[in-house]
């Protein structure tokens, strides 16, 4: 593995090795001194062209827990559009001495461009509505810790599938690890063509949710979509929200997940997020461990992962 750009096409063994490592790094994070010298002397740059404080913090915590130095680049909204090209920006930051870049960008494919221009490992920290592979890893780690394995699990990903890089990344990773994934969304928020996707689709949450082991709720992104994609938020909640009433109908050991930030009262009931079977905070904790595993796999010597 030279880069981590997408979960699509990742071998099952690669995913499992990363998850096994992530589990060990999760242990490191519980130590009195939650830090190991594995990447001492390495520099990780976070290039977040799209603001995301939490994902950046998670990557920086992961790098620091491995004793790497971190640098962060965040363009002002205006300097990005015109003037210096993305390529020049990337070359400039690279020239400062960077061993790995984490790239988040609002446009699909940006991490691939950087991987083409630079000779260092690139981690996709989220590109457009395309991929967010470390989110998939942390989600799979969370599920694996809960259920032991993803094999044969029924997982529903619910919400704005069409504009969700989380849905795309998680679906491929979960399916590769043996889960049966169902994408649930209003018809306007399902991608137009999912025929080659390793997932079923449904527009009816109530019809599919009772067999689910995991219900993964996506944030309702009212800022995307460009127009009115469903009639109103209450109508969305009525059909697709994980209300406490719906939660009560889930299998007794089923869990609820959410990538954050949550819209309580919209896609997830006001109190549902606080239930023991809502794994939202565990996901956040695992985010650091999963990203440590990725950084270590890409920078920790000749990688066999």
């Amino acid at each position: 593995m030279n880069h981590l750009l997408t979960t699509e096409g990742l071998e099952r063994e690669t995913l499992e090795n990363l998850l096994t490592d992530a589990d060990e790094f999760a242990e490191v994070l519980t130590r009195p001194i939650p830090k190991v010298p594995a990447l001492r002397g390495k520099t990780v740059a976070t290039m977040f062209f799209e603001p995301s404080t939490r994902t950046r913090m998670s990557f920086e915590k992961a790098a620091k827990a491995l004793s790497a130095d971190t640098m962060s680049f965040s363009p002002g909204t205006s300097s990005l559009s015109k003037g210096e090209s993305l390529k020049d920006t990337a070359l400039t930051v690279h020239a400062m001495g960077v061993d790995l870049m984490v790239v988040r960008h609002g446009a699909t494919g940006t991490p691939w461009r950087l991987a083409e221009w630079l000779d260092i490992p690139i981690v996709n920290g989220g590109d457009g509505a395309h991929q967010h592979p470390t989110q998939a890893l942390l989600d799979c780690l969370t599920i694996k810790q809960r259920f032991g394995s993803l094999d044969g699990l029924e997982i529903a990903i619910v919400g704005d599938i069409k504009h969700s890089r989380v849905a795309r990344s998680d679906m491929f990773a979960m399916a590769t690890l043996g889960a049966n994934v169902t994408l649930v969304a209003p018809p306007t928020l399902l991608p137009v063509d999912t025929t080659r996707w390793p997932a079923a689709t449904s527009t009816d949450l109530d019809a599919v949710m009772e067999k689910m082991d995991v219900v993964y709720l996506l944030r309702v992104q009212t800022e995307r979509g460009g127009g009115s994609v469903f009639p109103s938020l209450p109508e969305y909640t009525n059909r697709y929200g994980m209300t406490s009433a719906r939660f009560a109908r889930l299998k007794p050991d089923a869990v609820v997940m959410h990538p954050g930030p949550m819209n309580r009262g919209v896609e997830i009931g006001h109190d549902v997020a606080d239930y023991e079977r809502a794994l939202v905070l565990q996901q956040v904790t695992n985010g650091v461990a999963a990203r440590m595993a990725v950084l270590f796999a890409l920078l920790g010597g000749d990688s066999d992962v």
Partner: peptide
């Protein structure tokens, strides 16, 4: 594995 000082020069073994 996370404490080795030869991380750049040896093939990595699994953690």
């Amino acid at each position: 594995g996370m404490y080795r000082d030869d991380i750049d020069t040896r093939p990595r073994t699994r953690i």
